[in-house]
Amino acid sequence: MNEPTADLNHPQLPRRPLGPPLSEPSCWHDIRVTVNGAPVCAQVESRLLLVDFLRHRLGLTGTHVGCEQGSCGACTILVDGVGVRSCLTLAVQADGSDVRTVESLAESGELNRLQRAFHEEHGMQCGFCTPGILMSMTALEESSEVIDDDAIMEHLGGNLCRCTGYVNIRNAARRACLRERSRPVDEGADRDA
């Protein structure tokens, strides 16, 4: 019936593909991105998702892949200051952009206010969705808007969590992000620059 397949298997192939790990004949692009403040130049193939570029090419595995359909928010990162699904973005589309991931948050070495709020309110269990949620909240926090409960709910709406039931996530987000007055514009601009 079926052909034996042993002769089709060839572990003797080159251990590493030549060039970048995705060996494919065409469609390569040079991109320059700033990732967590550091300039990165890389060659990527057209179809490489931004999330795979970050995780597998740059080793920034804090950004997680939950659905690859844009539904769960686990891969949320900041591109030019706004929250974006990195599973629905090609690496090549990020050329010239400023990209920030969860690894950038504890800038001083200490957990930042948002991270501390999630710890103190027990706003996480398995921690798989947490980086995406932190980045969604970072985008909101860094916007110049007044942040009321509606804004928090809207910005959390696109992030699924299966462990916590959201109650402590809401509490953590409120603790860290609620503010009655809008943020001075220049402060927001500084962060975006």
């Binding site: 949320t76 929250g83 974006v84 629905l88 973005t89 969604s136 809207e154 910005h155």
Partner: peptide
């Protein structure tokens, strides 16, 4: 439409 993260793109 979707969520803010979708509308940003």
């Amino acid at each position: 439409i979707g969520h803010p993260q979708i509308r940003n793109r």
